[in-house]
Amino acid sequence: MSSNKMRLSGWPLLLPALALLAGILLVPLGRTLLDSVSEPTWTLKNYENIFTDGVTLTVLGRTVMIAAAVTAAALLIGYPYAYLMTRVSPRARGILLVIVLIPFWTSVMARNFAWIIILQNGGPVQKVFALLGADHVVLYGTSAGVTIAMTQVMLPFMVLPLFSTLGSIDRRLLLAARGLGSSPTAAFWKVFFPLSRGGVVAGVILVFTLSLGFYVTPALLGSPQQSLVAQLLAQRTTQLLDFAAAGALGMVVLIVTLVLVAWANRMGGTMSAIGVVATSRTKDR
C-alpha cells in the first residue's frame, strides 16, 4: 500500500517541470515545426529550399567543415590529455580536471571578448607569429580563429568521455603485449587504442554535434561572409522575418543534434559526461 501511495505522490511533483518544458520549449518548437510545413500553404517547399537556394547548403557545408576541424583538434589534444589524467596521482588528476574545465568557468562573453583581444590585428598572437618570421598572420575574422576558440570550449566534452574509457582499460594487457615481444608503439595501436574506441566515438560525436550550433563565437570572431548555420538562422528570424524558412532549417539542426547525441549516448558515457560538464559549468553558444 505504502509503495503505491508513494508512486502516486511522485507524479504531481513532476508537473511544474513538465509544464515549463512543454510551454517554453515543446510548444514553441512544435509551432516552429508546424510553421515550417504550413507556410504559406501545406508544403515541404521550405525544406526543399534548403537544398536549392544555393546559400543554405554552402553554409551548412562550412558549418560541418568547422565542426569537423574542431572535433579533430579536440581529439588530438584531448586524447593525450585524458591519457595523462589516467597516469598521474589523484591530486594531479584533480588539477588537470580543473584546468580543462576552466573555459566553463569563464563567462561566455568575457571568453569571446578575450579571444578578440588575443587574435585581433596587432594582438599578441600576431606578434608571436611575427617573431617567428611569419608576418601578418590573420586569425581574427577567419574560420581558423573561430575553430581555435571553439576547440577551447569543446575540449571538456572530448576529455571527459575519453577519461572514463581510458581509465577503465586494464593496463596489464599492455604488459602482456610487451611480454609477447611487441614494441610500445605497436602495443598502443593494437591493444590500447582499439579498447578506447568507445570513448573516442562518444567524444567525437558529442563535440561534433555541439559544434554545429555555435552562434556567439562565429558571430564575434568570424566574418559575415563566412557565416555558420546559427548565424543564418538568426538572420532569417530577426532580419528577414522569414519564420518558416528559419523554422525548417532549425528543425534540421535540432533533429540532427538529438539523433547524434542519442547515438553517442549509446556508445556509452556521454550522458554522464554531459552531467559532469553540466554541473561544472554552463555551455557556450
Binding site: I24, L212, T237, G250, L254, T257, V261, R285
Partner: peptide, 23 residues
Amino acid sequence: VRTLLMVPIVAPAIVVAVAVYIS
C-alpha cells in the same frame, strides 16, 4: 521523462532561441 527534461542541455541554444522568440 528524465531524458526529456535533459533535452534543453543538448538542444542547440540558437534553435531554442529562434523558437522561443517567435512564440
